[in-house]
Amino acid sequence: MKILVTVKRVPDPEQKIKLKDDRIDLSAANWQLNQFDEYAVEAALRLTEDARNPATRLGEVTVVSLGPAEVQQQLRAALAMGADKAVRVDSRDEDLDADIVARTVEKLVRRDSPDLVLMGKLAADNEGNEVGQRLAGYLGWPQATFASIIEVVEGGKALLVGREVDAGVEMKKVRLPAVVTVDLRIVAPQAIKNGRTPPDHAYPEGPRYASLKGIMAAKKKPIEELTLAQLAIQPTLRVRTVSVRLPPPRKAGIKVSSVQELVDKLHNEAKVI
């Protein structure tokens, strides 16, 4: 199976946000691989290996990112985990929106014809959650979002995808080629069944470590560099950021002296009971 995985670098979500000139100041940002994209890389690797002999690849995983030269660090991290090759489409973060990203990935998909596009369900920076859906729309491919289970069925012609919904787990069958976005639990020990790894095999929880051998091997793996112009993408933003503001600070709470007072306030002021 040939899989294309999209990855994005995001500022460390634990860092405090600072504003400067109505924009988020990212000059001191600590960049890292978006967590859900790391899960997508792990899922792609599990789909393309026999866990008993992971050194022998059963498919090909290409990681793709849009961004400046520094993004190479995050691509290299995915290669060190075990992805086979990478593509970086040169761009500045401020020149991108979800639509440009979706249209760019669409071009790459049409060029490289993967069987599956795996993506994180959203990026931890703006939590947009729209590139996967837009991409499936542009390609006219079936999509399954928020996957927590993926099983290869019908001899590799389709996927059974589990999505956690309020009532339980919804199972969807999608024909390949397809676009699938993954949720947190896709990296649970038995979330992926690829028909080669024994079904009772349990992976360690979470994405794999980049081993030292993996890191050394990643140095030799190719990273193709492209521009938006080479892919004939019109860099016209559909979303324009007008300004960015921090939410107002929360007002301090109050202490009540009796249960009666609490009930009274909940009933008369908050009007919740």
Partner: peptide, 26 residues
């Protein structure tokens, strides 16, 4: 807050991609 290392003088700029990846793994 998870541990993110101590780097007051942007010494990370002196490190290669490979060196940063090794540190991240451990």
């Amino acid at each position: 807050m998870p541990y993110r290392g101590v780097d007051y003088f942007a010494l990370d700029d002196l490190l290669t991609e490979e060196e940063r990846l090794v540190r991240a793994t451990f």
